[in-house]
Amino acid sequence: MLTLTDLMNAPAPASGWVLAQDCEETGLDPADIRAEMARRIGEMRDSIERGLSSDAKSITGMVGWNAKGLWDAPDALNAPLIRRVQAYAMAVNEENARMGRIVAAPTAGSAGTIPGALLGVADHLGIPDERLVDPMILAAGVGKAISKRMFISGAAGGCQAEIGSSAAMAAAAVTELLGGSPRACIHAASLALMNTIGLVCDPVGGYVEVPCVSRNAFFAVHAVSAAQLALAQLESFIPPDEVVGAMAQVGRMMPAQLRETAEGGLAQTPTGLAVTACMEGRQPDEGGGMIELPMA
């Protein structure tokens, strides 16, 4: 069974080892796996571009203008990397929320984190997309290692399982892109996971919109933070696979009301309940933007 320890102890670069394992398992040629990954990076790129230029509302109308709003706003903090990473991540998730085309990574609800962090950092530093293929293959390997120990869905393990996995995958990818050793990459993943444990899945109305869109912005930055620490040789005190085990345990302890059922947390706020009530009479192919929120 593939573990994070295996990846950490692999010869550098860690992505090369993941690729060799993939070839052995699928019987595919490494060039074909790389080409398919390059195509998916292109799909991510397209979804970012569409998301940054659109303010069309989502299915419910709760989101749709956040990525463009941030991208067009002045950079108040003078922190262009953070702004880029956040905007890219939300661009992908707002495309997702308006039924646009995205790449699940590992799920649709967490699809913005990896493109936000990896493509955001690459664009900030002027690194071309071809150099993202191998880090993205490592991200897939990290996701696979986590999924062997834990269900990667909000319904099974809470948001920690979805966004925690995507942040861990992104952290490892960014670390490898910037020259980190396999050990640094996996410690970045572990740091990201460790600081996501306990996060519940309480989407308003059950839709993949609030808090999912802004959450991807936050956790894309979270992944970059983890990479920054790991590249400075800081490590996760609890070994990576033990962190995965801890997260799986917390997921099992989490009540069903906080696992994607919209029966707790943000979904049960007065505003959350009003959104649910408003959407119940809606036809399945009706457009967004018709919700009338209760007066505050």
Binding site: M37, E95, R101, V103, A104, A108
Partner: peptide
């Protein structure tokens, strides 16, 4: 884990 390429919003409720 990177994929599928899909129309949103949910891998289980839409792509599946």
């Amino acid at each position: 884990m990177i994929g599928p390429v899909m129309i949103g919003p949910s891998s289980s409720h839409t792509a599946g």
